[in-house]
């Protein structure tokens, strides 16, 4: 079965119009050319894919419990949420 990491990267890659292989863990969304609208779309797609709630408010991204500073932090955040919300 595909890992959470691979599925998250696939969603981010689709948003960035890139191949999943071209997305690396240390990149930021800005590096990938994903703007604020692209971000909320990605979060929506992730929520749908994993049937989870991602705590994210576009007004205070830095205050949300969800760290969007890189692909790695997003993947880690989603892994945690999937573990928690499907526990």
């Amino acid at each position: 079965m595909t890992s959470v990491k691979d599925r998250v990267i696939a969603i981010i890659a689709e948003q960035a119009v890139l191949e999943p292989g071209d997305v690396s863990m240390d990149q930021t969304l800005e590096d990938l050319g994903i703007d604020s609208l692209g971000l909320v779309e990605s979060i929506f797609a992730i929520e749908e894919a994993f049937d989870i709630q991602v705590p994210f408010n576009a007004n205070e991204p830095q205050e949300s419990d969800f760290d969007i500073s890189s692909v790695a932090t997003i993947v880690a955040g989603i892994e945690k949420l999937v573990a928690e919300q499907h526990a």
């Binding site: 909320v40 979060i43 408010n57 576009a58 007004n59 205070e60």
Partner: peptide
Amino acid sequence: LRVMSKDACRPFSMNRNG
């Protein structure tokens, strides 16, 4: 859109959240 506040509308205040 994730621009809505869950608690209050606080325009211009540093801690505004939507």
